[in-house]
Nucleic acid binder design. Structure first.
Lengths: 201, 201
DNA sequence: ACCTGAACACCGTTCAAGT
DNA sequence: ACCTGAACACCGTTCAAGT
C-alpha cells in the first residue's frame, strides 16, 4: 500500500501528457526525458521501458498531434452552421482549424512536419495518412460537383494540405501575423477553388 | 610562426562551413559546438566569441540558407532557356530550385522554417525577406499582364511561397516522394496561375 | 578582440539488478 | 513486464585569465 507503487501503471500516458505541456510552454529544446521522469516521480531510466529513446517520444507526440489535428478539423466542419456550408466555407473552416492548431502548438506542429518517415516512425506516417484521409473526404464533399474520380481528389487534397501547412509555417516562424495568415488562407482557398475548377477535366 | 596561431583569423567562417556539412551529413541533433571547436583545432570555449550560444549558430545557418536559396532561385530563372520563359515555365523553374534545395539540405530547410522571428534573430528574418523580394519580382514578371499593383503581387507571392514550402515539407518528411513532389509542384503552379487570373481584379 | 581551460550543471543511453 | 540506480560519455554555458 505504498503511495508510490513500483509499477506506476500509467507512466507512458503521464509522460506523454507532461511532454505535451512542456512542448507548449517551453519548446522542444527544453524537453528532457530526465526531467519528465523526475516530474513523474520515477527514476531517470524508467521512460526507457516505454520509449526507446528521445526520438521515440517525439514521434509519439507527433503521432498524437496528427490525430488531434484530424479531430479538430472534423469538429470544425461538423459544427459549421448550415448557411456556411458552401465549398468555400467548408475548406475555410478546415483550414482555420489547421491554423489554430499550429498557432496554439507551434512546436508540436514543427515536430509533426519534421518527423521523418523512417522505418521506425511508421506510426507517425500512418497518423499523417489518417489526417490526409479526413482532408480528402472534405475536399471531395466540397468540390464534388466538379469531379468524381478519386485520383483528382487526392491530388487536390495534397495541394491544399501543402498550402495550408505552408501558411502555418509562415505564421509560426513569425514571417506573417495571425491576421495575415487568416487573410492568406482566404486567398489560398479562393485560388484553390477557382484553379481547381479550371484544371479539372 | 606557430602552425596554430592564437588568433585563428577565420574561425567564424570555418565553424559555419563545417556546421553546414554536419547538418547535411548527420542532422541538427548531431550538431555540437564542442565538436565543431574540436574539428577546428580550437578550444571548446572559442566559438563563444562568434556565437553567443548554439541558437545563434543555428540562426546564422538559417540566414545563410535563405541567401543561398535566393541565389539558387535567381540562377534557375536566369539560366532558363528562352522557349521555357512562359509564365508557367518561370514559376516552375523557381519552384524546382526550391524543391532541389530542400531535397539536398532537408535539415537546413527545416531550420529556416523553424527559425522564429525573435528580436535576436532579426538577421534571419531579413534574409527571409530578401528571398521574398526575389520571389515577388519573379511572380510580377511571370504574371505581369494580369495585374499591376504591388499589393496583389505580394499576396500572390506569399501564397505561392507557402505552397512551395509546404510541398518541400511533405517531401523532406517523406510523406511524398521526390517524383510526387515534382508532380505536385506542377499542379500547384497550374492551379496558382489559373486561380490567380480569376481572382485578380 | 579573440581564445584558453577549468568548473558547473545538465543531458541521453546502457545495463545489471531488483520486484 | 516494468522500474531502479550506478556508470559512461557526452553536452552547453560561464568566466577569469591569458595574448
Amino acid at each position: 500500500m505504498s503511495r508510490q507503487p513500483f509499477h506506476h501503471g500509467n507512466l507512458r500516458a503521464e509522460l506523454l501528457e507532461r511532454a505535451e505541456a512542456v512542448l507548449r510552454e517551453r519548446g522542444v529544446e527544453k524537453l528532457s526525458l530526465r526531467e519528465l521522469a523526475r516530474d513523474a516521480g520515477v527514476s531517470h531510466g524508467a521512460p526507457r521501458s516505454h520509449f526507446i529513446d528521445r526520438g521515440a517520444l517525439l514521434d509519439a507526440l507527433a503521432e498524437r498531434g496528427f490525430d488531434r489535428l484530424a479531430k479538430a478539423v472534423e469538429a470544425a466542419v461538423r459544427t459549421l452552421p448550415k448557411d456556411s456550408r458552401t465549398d468555400f466555407g467548408l475548406l475555410r473552416a478546415a483550414g482555420s482549424a489547421y491554423l489554430d492548431f499550429a498557432a496554439h502548438n507551434p512546436d508540436l506542429a514543427a515536430l509533426m512536419v519534421a518527423a521523418k518517415a523512417d522505418d521506425t516512425s511508421r506510426p507517425v506516417h500512418d497518423a499523417a495518412l489518417r489526417l490526409f484521409t479526413t482532408m480528402t473526404a472534405l475536399v471531395t464533399t466540397a468540390l464534388s460537383p466538379r469531379f468524381n474520380d478519386r485520383e483528382t481528389a487526392e491530388r487536390l487534397t495534397l495541394l491544399l494540405s501543402a498550402t495550408v501547412q505552408g501558411i502555418c509555417s509562415l505564421m509560426t516562424s513569425g514571417r506573417i501575423s495571425a491576421t495575415q495568415g487568416d487573410a492568406l488562407l482566404d486567398d489560398a482557398i479562393h485560388v484553390f477553388i477557382a484553379g481547381a475548377v479550371s484544371n479539372t477535366p
